[in-house]
């Protein structure tokens, strides 16, 4: 599975009752993600990719932003 699909699946796994998740989905506006949802998403990403996420993911706005940050970390 490519990195994009792994991220989308991780996001879907912790967001119940939400609309479809795509790379272009905006976390706040489209997926209605609040601060706790965001923590859950980042935790799921940590588990999926076996990494420790710190402040560098604080400014992610879309699902694609998470992919970009992961690629910058060498994934």
């Amino acid at each position: 599975m490519n990195i994009e699909d792994r991220v989308i699946n991780s996001v879907k796994g912790v967001l119940d009752k939400r609309p479809e998740v795509t790379l272009d989905s905006r976390l706040l506006e489209d997926l209605l993600v609040d601060s706790l949802d965001k923590l859950m998403i980042l935790s799921a990403i940590e588990d999926e990719f076996g990494l420790e996420i710190e402040e560098e993911f604080a400014d992610v706005h879309t699902v694609k932003d998470i992919v970009v940050k992961l690629k910058a970390r060498g994934f």
Binding site: V14, D16, L36, D37, L39, M40, S43
Partner: peptide, 8 residues
């Protein structure tokens, strides 16, 4: 100030 992980 510790790590927080919410669960569904």
């Amino acid at each position: 100030g510790c790590k927080i992980r919410p669960f569904l």
